[in-house]
Design a protein around this nucleic acid. Structure first.
Lengths: 171, 171
DNA sequence: CTGAAGCCTGCGGATTTCGCAGAAGTGGGG
DNA sequence: CCCCACTTCTGCGAAATCCGCAGGCTTCAG
């Protein structure tokens, strides 16, 4: 019974990967629980309960619900460079026509780790994670620029990742 | 079996919070462990061990080391909009002089969630997470632009976050 | 009033985590 | 070649944690 994650997947077909914008309102207790797990994703439920004033079982139920609803995920995050992805880039995209459909196409590409619709001189910004220069070139020039609706792109190749945190709410 | 542990010689202890670029080489077993934890950050060590062919204690030691070295962190990640941060933006920064010192100053700001040095028309790209428009304005116009070395900035306010994954290596 | 739904608590058993001691492999000096 | 220092893996109890379940409390609608 290790993978209790499987259970939640079948219940609702909503893809938990896809962040929605107007999610359910969270009360201050759930917020406090999230803060605890942002500090340490493996913190025991009992310790969290002590911090937020709830029983261990209550914390467990709330965490499970937050995971099922896709409000948060508990995962390992790494510096991609240390795990073998040597080229990363932020790509700004100019779109003509339907921005959302282009965004969906980019979302479907596994090399696109981060896709966001923006206001400003770009319509979309996309973070790309690749293994090497050839891979990066292929993704940007052959795949992204080939998408219908993409007028032009501008690339910003990563030289050095300086900061990467997940501490919203703990300040 | 687990023969090729060519990795991790000199145990140079660096600042664990600051992601470095050329971190220690990871062998395939550590990579497999990370993949497991990218799927579920709370997966038990025994289950991971079964998946990668190691004992529970060995997995535990390796995970602890990866955390200590700052190669990965296990955290809860959320869609900021659902936890009360209503304004986000990517900011491109043009720098004159020492880019690294500007990057350090940005890294020190709690509203900057992501800081990366880039090649391209921007020297730095920064992701900002704020509570509202006033807060965003204050950060960009009063704090970032006031930094010595910052020549100009260009902002891309987030309209909709379409994708946010942490599944490098699992594709 | 009554039933359903949502959330919390307490509790016991199964599971996991934790610390430690020992074995096994590696890489120099002497 | 032997020995030592260092690293990493394994095995194993003891302690802590996780998990499912039954029950209590409150809210809300009929």
């Amino acid at each position: 019974m290790h993978s209790d994650v499987v259970a939640s997947r079948s219940a609702e077909h909503r893809d938990s990967r896809e962040p929605r914008s107007g999610g359910p309102q969270l009360d201050s207790v759930s917020l406090a629980i999230i803060e605890q797990l942002q500090e340490d994703g493996r913190r025991p439920y009992a310790a969290i309960g002590k911090a937020v004033g709830l029983s261990e079982a209550a914390v467990r139920q709330r965490v499970q619900k937050l995971l099922d609803q896709g409000v948060m995920q508990i995962v390992a995050v790494t510096d991609p460079l240390t795990v073998g992805f040597r080229r990363q880039a932020m790509v700004g995209v100019h779109v003509e026509g339907d921005v959302e459909s282009v965004a969906d196409a980019l979302t479907a590409m596994s090399e696109c780790e981060y896709v966001v619709m923006t206001a400003g001189s770009f319509d979309l910004m996309v973070e790309i994670v690749c293994e090497d220069d050839d891979h990066l070139l292929e993704v940007i020039n052959r795949r992204i620029r080939a998408l219908p609706g993409v007028r032009s792109t501008e690339s910003f190749v990563y030289l050095k990742l300086k900061k990467q945190t997940y501490m919203w709410g703990t300040r």
